[in-house]
């Protein structure tokens, strides 16, 4: 019995270490498939409004979900050789701060407020690419300036099992800034939160792997409004 417990505990610890160091196996995973249709002659219309003109880029590959509601375009910056991905969906909750998992690389990336993600100079065989998405299952808004030291939040946006979920947020004073303890409550038994993202602004996003639905964040000084996303 004791040995079994120890083995189980060791397994749990290894699983935890793995979840912090490798990409997470999201339950709410949307698989993407290569689209064989002809590539758009005007990629800038879909993904590069306001950015340098499209001739700097060459569209490399387009993937879509089985219902074609999600469209992921992976493009190469021909000058730098960097890859960028652009996620498109009619609803902003489904392209903003979505995890893009590149299964070949065992890595996941988080899109920004425009559905864009910088992949950098990665070794990616685009003809063999396998990708999936994990959009947030619940989104909460928090204004630290007006919130008391401890507050329970209801989601601004939630899907399926996450509709009844609540988020308990507590503030603690840290060395340089306030520390945030975020804990999901009312979680159904079958639900496990794989990641929690604290969106501070366009540039600052912190991603934690929660333990028992709980994560501790140390946001930078003078952070104003937060968005907290839960991923299953």
């Amino acid at each position: 019995m004791g040995k079994n417990f120890k083995t189980l505990e060791k397994k749990d610890i290894l699983h935890f270490c793995n979840s912090l160091s490798h990409s997470v196996n999201f339950k709410n995973r949307i698989n993407l498939y290569l689209r064989k249709s002809q590539s758009s002659p005007f990629p800038h219309l879909l993904g590069f409004e306001g950015l340098p003109s499209f001739e700097f880029y060459a569209e490399k590959v387009t993937l879509s979900s089985s219902d074609e509601s999600y469209l992921l375009r992976i493009l190469r910056d021909n000058i730098k050789g960097d890859l960028e991905a652009h996620l498109l969906h009619p609803e902003k909750e489904k392209y903003q701060y979505v995890f893009v998992c590149l299964d070949n690389l065992h890595r996941d990336y988080l899109t920004d407020a425009h559905g864009r993600v910088y992949l950098g100079q990665i070794d990616l065989d685009l003809s063999q690419i396998k990708a999936s998405l994990c959009p947030p299952s619940a989104i909460f808004d928090l204004d630290p300036a007006t919130s008391p030291l401890s507050v329970t939040l209801r989601p601004r946006y939630a899907t399926g099992d996450f509709e009844g979920i609540e988020l308990r947020v507590e503030f603690f004073s840290g060395e340089k800034s306030r520390i945030l303890k975020v804990q999901a409550t009312n979680l159904p038994d079958n639900v496990e939160i794989k990641k929690i993202a604290l969106v501070i602004n366009e540039l600052e996003i912190l991603v934690a792997v929660p333990q028992k639905g709980l994560a501790i964040f140390e946001p930078p000084e003078n952070s104003e409004v937060f968005q907290i996303n839960l991923y299953e």
């Binding site: 610890i13 600052e204 934690a208 994560a215 140390e218």
Partner: peptide, 13 residues
């Protein structure tokens, strides 16, 4: 222990 360590390994963008 896991909670203590996980707070060290919060990633940024």
């Amino acid at each position: 222990a896991l909670l203590t360590v996980s707070s060290l390994f919060v990633r940024n963008k």
